[in-house]
C-alpha cells in the first residue's frame, strides 16, 4: 500500500494540471466567498444572514474544481491506457483504488485548508462592512467560536468527501466528460430542482437525501429551520461517497480495463 500510495502521489504531483487546478480551487473559493461577504447585506439587527455561511459561499464553486481534480486522477489513466500499466504494477485493484482515494483526499485536504482559511479571513475582514457589525449583534468571525469552527472545518471535510465521491463516480463511469457531467449534475442540478418544487415535503426530502445536504455543515444560525442538522448532512454526503467507492471497488475488481 505504501508504494502504491507513493506512486499515486508522484502521478498527481507531476501532472501539469494539478497545480493549476489547486490554485484555481483556492482562488475561486476565496474569491466567491469574498464577493459574497462584500455584497450580501445585513441592514437591521433582525437580518437573517449567517456570517459563517456567507463567508464560505465559495465552497459551492470550489467543489467543481475539486471534482475535476479527482475525476482526472482516475479517468485520465483510462483515457491514456496508463491504467493497464498501473494495474500491472499494483495487481490488487482495490489497493490501487484506495491509494488513489487517499492521495486525492490528502491533496484536497491541504487545498481546502488554504481555501477555507482564506475565505474565513476574507469574511472576518469584509463582513463588518456589509453590516454584520456589533450593532446588529454579530461578532467578527473567529475560529475560536465553536459553530464557526464547525462550519469551517466541516467545509474542509465536505470538500474531501466530494473528492472521494468523484473518485468513486469516475472509477465507475471511466470517461472524463461523463464523470464530470454526473458530478456537476449531482452538485448543481439538485439545488435548482429543489428550488422549483412547491411541495414542502418533497423539497425537504430532496434537501436531506442528496450530496449537497453536506453543505448544512456551514449553517451556524437558525438551526431550527434548516432541512437537516449540520453533522447529519455531512453524514449523508459521507454515505454517498462510501456508496460510490464501494461500487467502484466492486467494478474495478470485476471489469476489464
Amino acid at each position: 500500500m505504501r508504494t502504491a500510495l507513493h506512486a499515486e502521489w508522484t502521478k498527481l504531483r507531476t501532472s501539469p494540471a494539478t497545480i493549476w487546478l489547486l490554485l484555481a480551487a483556492v482562488t475561486l473559493t476565496a474569491g466567491v466567498s469574498a464577493a459574497a461577504a462584500a455584497t450580501i447585506p445585513c441592514k437591521t439587527a433582525a437580518c437573517l444572514g449567517d456570517p459563517a455561511q456567507i463567508s464560505l459561499t465559495g465552497v459551492q464553486l470550489g467543489q467543481a474544481v475539486v471534482v475535476i481534480l479527482a475525476v482526472l486522477a482516475v479517468s485520465g489513466e483510462h483515457a491514456t491506457g496508463m491504467i493497464r500499466t498501473s494495474l500491472t504494477a499494483v495487481p490488487r485493484r482495490s489497493t490501487l483504488l484506495a491509494a488513489k482515494a487517499v492521495a486525492v483526499t490528502g491533496v484536497t485536504m491541504v487545498t481546502a485548508t488554504v481555501a477555507v482559511g482564506t475565505s474565513v479571513l476574507a469574511g472576518r475582514l469584509l463582513l463588518p462592512g456589509s453590516g454584520y457589525t456589533a450593532a446588529h449583534g454579530f461578532t467578527p468571525l473567529s475560529p475560536t467560536d465553536g459553530p464557526t469552527l464547525r462550519a469551517a472545518g466541516g467545509s474542509m471535510l465536505y470538500l474531501c468527501l466530494i473528492a472521494l465521491l468523484a473518485v468513486g463516480v469516475a472509477t465507475v463511469v471511466r470517461d472524463t466528460g461523463a464523470s464530470i457531467g454526473v458530478m456537476l449534475a449531482l452538485l448543481y442540478l439538485v439545488p435548482i430542482v429543489t428550488q422549483a418544487l412547491t411541495d414542502p415535503d418533497w423539497k425537504r426530502h430532496l434537501q436531506q437525501a442528496t450530496p449537497t445536504a453536506g453543505l448544512a455543515i456551514q449553517a451556524t444560525r437558525h438551526l431550527d429551520t434548516v432541512a437537516i442538522p449540520p453533522w447529519h448532512g455531512l453524514a449523508v454526503l459521507a454515505a454517498w461517497a462510501a456508496g460510490a467507492l464501494l461500487a467502484a471497488a466492486v467494478l474495478i475488481r470485476t471489469r476489464d480495463t
Binding site: A64, V71, T176, G177, I180, G181, L184, Y188, I192
Partner: peptide, 13 residues
Amino acid sequence: SAAAVTTAVLGIV
C-alpha cells in the same frame, strides 16, 4: 473533456 465540460456547465448553469 474536463475543462470543456466544466466551463460549459458552469458558464450556463
